[in-house]
Amino acid sequence: MRLSPDAIVLWQSGFFKLNATILFTWALMLVLVVGAKLVTRKLSTDLTRSRWQNLLEIVVTALEQQIGEVGLRQPRHYLAFLGTLFLFVAAASLGTVLPGYEPPTGSLSTTVALALCVLVAVPWYGIADQGVRRYLASYLEPTFLMLPFNVISEISRTLALAVRLFGNMMSGAMILGILLTITPFIFPVVMTALGLLTGMVQAYIFFILATVYLAAATRTRAPDSAPSPSP
């Protein structure tokens, strides 16, 4: 039984290989970039604008507003990374309506890659915001004894991110495949709709958790690391 599109290998040369995960990821990237390019090619700064521009403006401003509501001070600074996380996971989920499509997020390799990106982005933005010493000192809060637990927390939440998204996406595709063999007509359609909803919810969860991690690394830790008066 195939649990991941990684198993579909189209080409392999030693360590390098081209599987369905990478291929569908490229397809998604192509659709997203070309679509964005087509829409933003003729942007209007007037009060009247096209429907697609309206849609993209709604998406971008909603993401920016959501990032700001979570607590990041400069939402536009993090919009590229966090917004792309949401759009990629959501687009991968929306693509399941196409026959023969396998979502790349149904591969644990993809979710791990995304979680690793978040794992790297948190100290990256944290150091850029607070500096190396203050960021590393945050792992010693409230005492140095908490250092291992803080490190384990970072790793475990990254693992949780990856496995949560993979489990949900894989289970959706898996349930759909099983139902197709049992009740091939009506019920899979309903489950596909449910899978769309689940995919959008997972995209939002992944996006909001990554935002919360970044906010925790940048803003909320800053007051804690501030020098307090000695008793």
């Binding site: 990684d6 995960t21 990821t25 990237m29 792309t84 990629f88 995304l114 990106c117």
Partner: peptide, 18 residues
């Protein structure tokens, strides 16, 4: 379930997409 080449490739793909 984890193909580390795919992980690397997907991470690179994601950064390019960003």
């Amino acid at each position: 379930l984890i193909d580390w080449f795919t992980v690397g490739a997907q991470a690179l793909n994601f950064l390019i997409l960003v």
